[in-house]
C-alpha cells in the first residue's frame, strides 16, 4: 500500500490547485447539456422505440466524447509537471519504487474521474422520478465509461511521462486518442480485411456494446489489458532514466 502516499499527495494537489474543480465543472456542464438534448430527442421521437437505443446509447456515446475531451487535461500534468518543477528528483530519491509512483498517480486520476462520473448519476436518477425504466442498460454504459476512462488515464499518463511540457503532453494525448477514434472511420481507404484487425484495437468501437447496454467479458478484458499495457509503457519510460543519458 506504499502507493497511498503518492495517491494522497496527487489528490491534495488536484484539489488544492482547482484543477479538479474546474475539470469537474466542465465535465458536468457538458454531460448535463448532452443528457438534456438527448432526453429532448427521446421525448420528441422516442416514444415508439425502447429507451436503450433512443436515449442511453446516444447519451453514453456523448459521455465518451466528453471523457476524451476532459481526461487529457487531467493527466497532462502527472509527470510533465514533476519534471518541470524538478520534484521528480525527490520522488526518485525517496524509498519509493516506480510502480508505487505510477499506481498512486493512476488511482488518483481514476478517483477524480470516477467521482465526476458518479455525479452524473444524478441525470438518470432525475429521469427515474418521472419515467420508469430498467437500470440495467445505463449501468452497463457506466461500467464501460469507467473502463474507457481508466484506459484514457493510463494512456495520458504514459504520454505525460515522455515530456516536461504540459501542453505537449495534452496535445499528444488528444492526438493518440483521436487516432484511436478515427481508426475505423474510413473503411474504403484501408480495406475491409485491415479494418477487421484494427477495429479490434479501437478503444472507441469497443465501447459501442457498453453503450447499447451489453457487457461483454472480452471487452472488459480488452480495456483492462490496454490499461495495463499503458501502465507498463509508463514504467518503461520512467525506468529509462537508468540507461538513457538524461540530465
Amino acid at each position: 500500500m506504499k502507493f497511498m502516499c503518492v495517491f494522497k499527495k496527487e489528490l491534495r494537489l488536484y484539489f488544492g490547485s482547482f484543477i479538479a474543480y474546474s475539470l469537474m465543472t466542465a465535465f458536468l456542464i457538458l454531460t448535463g447539456y448532452f443528457f438534456y438534448t438527448d432526453m429532448v430527442f427521446f421525448d420528441l421521437f422516442g416514444d415508439f422505440m425502447d429507451i436503450t437505443s433512443s436515449l442511453w446509447t446516444y447519451y453514453f456515446l456523448d459521455l465518451r466524447f466528453v471523457t476524451m475531451l476532459i481526461l487529457p487535461l487531467l493527466t497532462m500534468r502527472l509527470f510533465a509537471e514533476e519534471k518541470k518543477l524538478g520534484t521528480i528528483e525527490l520522488l526518485w530519491t525517496y524509498p519509493l519504487k516506480d510502480p508505487h509512483i505510477i499506481l498512486g498517480k493512476f488511482f488518483a486520476c481514476c478517483f477524480i474521474f470516477f467521482l465526476m462520473v458518479f455525479l452524473t448519476l444524478a441525470y438518470p436518477l432525475l429521469l427515474s422520478t418521472v419515467h420508469q425504466f430498467d437500470w440495467g442498460p445505463p449501468l452497463a454504459g457506466y461500467v464501460g465509461t469507467l473502463l474507457l476512462g481508466a484506459t484514457f488515464i493510463a494512456c495520458g499518463m504514459f504520454i505525460s511521462s515522455l515530456t516536461e511540457n504540459q501542453v505537449v503532453s495534452a496535445m499528444s494525448t488528444y492526438g493518440l486518442l483521436v487516432f484511436f477514434w478515427f481508426l475505423t472511420w474510413n473503411e474504403e481507404a484501408i480495406g475491409t480485411q485491415v479494418i477487421g484487425v484494427v477495429s479490434q484495437f479501437s478503444l472507441f468501437d469497443r465501447f459501442q456494446d457498453f453503450a447499447k447496454g451489453v457487457i461483454n467479458s472480452k471487452d472488459i478484458v480488452f480495456f483492462l489489458l490496454m490499461t495495463l499495457f499503458f501502465l507498463y509503457l509508463t514504467l518503461q519510460s520512467l525506468e529509462s532514466r537508468k540507461w538513457r543519458g538524461i540530465r
Binding site: 499527495k9 491534495r12 494537489l13 488544492g16 518543477l85 520534484t87 521528480i88 528528483e89 525527490l90
Partner: peptide, 9 residues
C-alpha cells in the same frame, strides 16, 4: 534545483 510542490502547504 530546490524542488518542492508550490501548491502544497
Amino acid at each position: 534545483r530546490v524542488s518542492v510542490y508550490p501548491d502544497l502547504p
